[in-house]
């Protein structure tokens, strides 16, 4: 019989010291690989000009300064389309796309998970299969469809397709399958509540982690969206695209572009820190059965 020993009051299997050390070393090496480029971006964004062009280059900043961020804001003020416009575009797309997706996808997920009707299996299978391919495959024909609806070069070209994205619906449906019990819904229906009411007042409050996850995923996708083939007017382009233009400015903007990257990454990272436990809980039911 294997030896049992306790670790933090939980009974776990015997763990060899060699294995523990090996795993710790491997994990540390991988962690360093992951974190070094991030440290380098932050360090670059704080370097004064002479340190950015020092030879040999230093990895870490010696005399940190906020000048790059100041430069970035000056560059933003000088741009042809005001930067506030790019920020407005990104926020509008992210908020509009995310909330539309939240309502449409959660409503559909509820019906697919909790109402038995002819065709529900087929529809869910189709949606699930579409998780398997990347959206670039459909970019050109999507363009034609948007052109037919006169959506090209408007906010709708970004917002409406986001409403129909698949991962959010998939996670929501799986979570409802495991966390919303039929008996609770049954008693609400017996009390005469309509399906729409049951969905909104009973099921939705029970799946808070799932809709937080859906919001985070959708928001991240839209926040990080760069240039799009559906948008060509400068005044509809995204913040991320504009940041890319600063980065493309080459050598003299190295500091400002690092500062911009840091600003851009702060938002999704903070959102994830706040919602992490909810996302992990949602992922608990993300599994696929066959």
């Amino acid at each position: 019989m294997a030896k049992l020993r306790t670790r933090k009051h939980k009974v776990v299997l015997s763990r060899s010291v060699g294995g523990d050390t090996g795993i710790t070393i491997l994990l540390t090496l991988l962690g360093i690989f992951m974190v070094l480029p991030m440290v380098y971006v932050i360090s670059q964004s704080l370097k004064p000009l002479d340190e950015l062009w020092m030879y040999p280059p230093r990895f870490l900043v010696k005399n940190p300064t906020p000048n790059n961020f100041r430069d970035l804001f000056r560059l933003m003020n000088d741009s042809w389309v005001p930067f506030s416009r790019y920020i407005f575009n990104t926020v509008l797309n992210a908020v509009g796309g995310t909330f539309g997706h939240l309502f449409l996808a959660s409503m559909a997920a509820y019906a697919l998970a909790k109402i038995k009707f002819p065709g529900s299996k087929l529809i869910f299978e189709t949606i699930r299969t579409s998780l398997m391919f990347h959206s670039t495959v459909t970019a050109i024909t999507s363009f034609m469809i948007m052109a037919a609806f006169k959506m090209i070069d408007t906010y709708w070209a970004i917002i409406i397709p986001a409403w129909g994205s698949t991962l959010g619906l998939y996670l929501m449906k799986q979570f409802m399958d495991t966390h919303v019990h039929d008996s609770v819904l049954e008693s609400a229906r017996l009390d005469g509540a309509s399906e729409l009411r049951t969905y909104w007042t009973i099921a939705m409050p029970m799946v808070k982690p799932a809709w937080l996850t859906l919001i985070v995923y959708s928001f991240q996708g839209l926040w990080n969206a760069g240039s799009s083939i559906y948008i060509y007017s400068e005044q509809y382009k995204s913040f991320n695209y504009a940041i890319g233009q600063i980065t493309a400015g080459g050598i003299k903007r190295a500091g400002a572009s690092a500062a911009a990257t840091v600003l851009m990454m702060l938002v999704p990272i903070m959102v994830f820190v706040i919602t992490q436990s909810n996302i992990i809980e949602t992922m608990g039911s993300s599994g696929m059965k066959d």
Binding site: L104, M107, A108, A111, I115, F117, S120, S130, T141, W163
Partner: peptide, 25 residues
């Protein structure tokens, strides 16, 4: 179950329009 169809319709229409139709097209 007409309510169920009404509930999935908005999502499914957009999903079909920007995922299924483009693939078929």
């Amino acid at each position: 179950n007409w309510v169920a169809y009404a509930m999935i319709a908005p999502y499914v229409i957009i999903f079909a329009l920007f995922t299924i139709v483009p693939v078929v097209l």
